[in-house]
Nucleic acid binder design. Structure first.
Lengths: 156, 156
DNA sequence: AACAATTAACTTGTGCACGAGTTAATCGCC
DNA sequence: GGCGATTAACTCGTGCACAAGTTAATTGTT
């Protein structure tokens, strides 16, 4: 077979062998399921994630939202301004530390939560996994995130 | 406990319960590991995916690249123009069907492959999973992609 | 042969992600 | 108490993703 090159087993460059591609494809495909559901309440997927963080515990500093979602200010600052324009949140400088901006939920932002309650149900249906499989997947994904985060930190 | 609302078990809005977030976080974290590796050969991660597709089988129509990566023309057209500007690919209208644009590898695009050979090795090291775990993860991710794709198609 | 429908690719506009550089407030240290 | 270092947030520029609309070539139907 002269037209097929010999490569080391663990270094295949075939697309379907790359875990990264499965991850990337799955992530985009799941986000695509969220889109029409979130359209109904007027949020994008990253905006929904920020609201999840705030519904869990608000008011919070932007720094804390950043840490929870692993997103930097360059992403969050404009996103939070859009959420503010939508009337879901308010930003406020802290008295005792003028560097910090605190994000609080408005009345509207709080009541939006009840409209989002059925989103996770619909999503878990779309994933088509059993509870056990979901748990396995989540465990593996968390380990991947932890390993790669540490790996990246080690190269800094 | 009056300050903690009662919610149905399967519809938690807690961030850490959302599989989607684990998926989103893992995908971005893995891409972050690729970034410095791909910087060395001057590619972004999506550009690298396109090159993987082409190294596997070129020349190909843009339509085929789109199908392989589940990316639409709005993403691919400018990306391919950048790869062309880098000298890795060439675009060419097909004689027998003037609608189709065929993408072929240049000499430079072909030799780039050898420089990319050690990327997957480094990545699999960074993931920190055994071969068996990697296989399990990939299997679950593929099922998620298949289920969600079908689910989205059913709502069209 | 004529023409409606489909198809491949492109364009435009919006919203992430992220790197790099900037600003202003606070902290640490002498 | 003063001053360099750090920190929180912002800004700017690039490159995806994706929806929606456009264009030109091809196909299918009569």
């Amino acid at each position: 077979m002269p037209e097929r090159e010999e490569v080391a087993l663990s270094s295949s460059l075939l697309l379907e062998d790359q875990i990264c591609f499965s991850l990337y494809a799955a992530s985009r495909s799941v986000t695509a399921v969220y889109r029409p559901l979130l359209d109904r309440i007027g949020l994008t997927y990253p905006q929904y994630l920020v609201m999840l963080v705030l519904w869990q515990d608000a008011p919070r500093a932007i720094k804390d939202i950043s840490a929870a979602l692993h997103l930097d200010y360059g992403t969050l600052t404009p996103l939070l301004k859009r959420l503010e324009a939508l009337g879901h949140i308010e930003r406020q400088r802290r008295f005792d530390d003028e560097r910090t901006v605190t994000i609080r939920l408005t009345e509207g932002g709080l009541t939006l939560r009840s409209e989002a309650l059925d989103v996770p149900i619909e999503i878990s249906r779309a994933l088509g996994l059993s509870a056990a499989e979901t748990a396995t997947l989540q465990g593996l994904l968390r380990r991947v995130t932890a390993s790669t985060t540490e790996y990246a930190a080690g190269r800094r």
